[in-house]
Design a protein around this nucleic acid. Structure first.
Lengths: 188, 188
DNA sequence: GCCTTAAAGCTAATGGGGTTAGCCAAACTT
DNA sequence: AAGTTTGGCTAACCCCATTAGCTTTAAGGC
């Protein structure tokens, strides 16, 4: 029996592909794809839950990188536009990865938390061009995340029954830009 | 062996309670709580997946009713305020039910789709006070759903690392009211 | 180049959850 | 009271996750 040459990374990669193709991420299926028996996976990964967490951490890193690349050299409304489109596109193209990022990260998983922080950091930086500080910056960042995540999640769950979703997304970007521009005056 | 006096409704109710208490909704646990053996559940419910769908449909109906009650007699910004608070509160108090509503409804489940439509309808009606029509009304409704769902989902997943979430939510309401007020002019 | 050894694969066995088949008693119908 | 439908049950079978423990590979020290 020649070795399959696996590694934690290889296993996580295959699980990610499986998830993004819409399959259920089971150890049975991952093992089958890797040409290996199920218990062999335990040499690289600490069970099904741990594999899920690794997939999530990988997904968050990739999302953060994608957002960072999309917004490089941009700021203010133009950064928001680029970021929103990159976010939606990535989520659409990696539905399994995106879904994996929604689980609350386990407290003991430093890698996943770091990846989370990185993604939020990119968003936070992109909003710097609006001149927000302190609580305003935090609140605006959270608002952005909520809008983008909410839209993408509803789209993924087929929550928008009718056509015209692209049109709605264009409006969403404009609304978001406007909201951020006027954020400080929201204190009424 | 005296009968337990079950019914589809009773099973779904118990599954809902279980979900909202944070437990995993398994047939084993539902049966245990009802004082019955697992296969007996099949006399009332068509398997685990079907039970999930029924829980989701029930949740959507309840959410729709809650939103409707919260907004009765209100319109415009005041309706949005009431609706946003009711939405967040209900989701916080019924985390399992809320999570169940996120699965895409199966195409053949008329009850679940009807419940979805009802919830969206309440939101749609609440926005009538802003004088939106046609695509604008649809886009604004979707934007609202995205913001509210995104915020609640991130909050539930412990996605906001720092404190001050209540403050952020107040800002969110104000931002939403402002956005809806100026929606038609978003065409730039 | 051997010899040791850690790592990476394997088989076998256990346990939990879901599902089906088929039996039997309780309750309803007339 | 007899017949029928209904709601419970037991037994058996899947699928997936996990653990224990064995074997072989491949890498490193001498």
């Amino acid at each position: 029996m020649p070795r399959a040459g696996l590694s934690e990374d290889r296993v996580v990669e295959e699980a990610t592909h499986l998830a993004d193709e819409g399959g259920a991420v089971t150890l049975v299926e991952v093992a089958r794809r890797l040409g290996v028996q199920v218990p062999s996976l335990y040499k690289h990964v600490d069970g099904a839950d741990a594999l899920q967490a690794l997939v999530a951490a990988r997904a968050k890193r990739e999302l953060a990188d994608t957002l960072a690349r999309a917004t490089v050299g941009k700021s203010g409304p133009s950064a928001v536009d680029a970021l929103a489109r990159a976010y939606r596109t990535w989520a659409d193209e990696h539905p399994g990865s995106y879904a994996s990022t929604l689980r609350a990260p386990s407290v003991d998983n430093a890698a996943e938390i770091a990846a989370s922080d990185k993604a939020v950091g990119v968003l936070f930086d992109a909003l710097a061009g609006f001149g927000l500080h302190g609580d305003d910056a935090i609140d605006a960042t959270r608002y952005c995340r909520a809008v983008l995540h909410g839209f993408v999640a509803l789209e993924a769950a087929n929550g928008f029954g009718l056509p015209g979703v692209d049109r709605t997304f264009e409006k969403l970007i404009t609304a978001l830009q406007l909201t951020l521009t006027h954020w400080p005056s929201l204190t009424i």
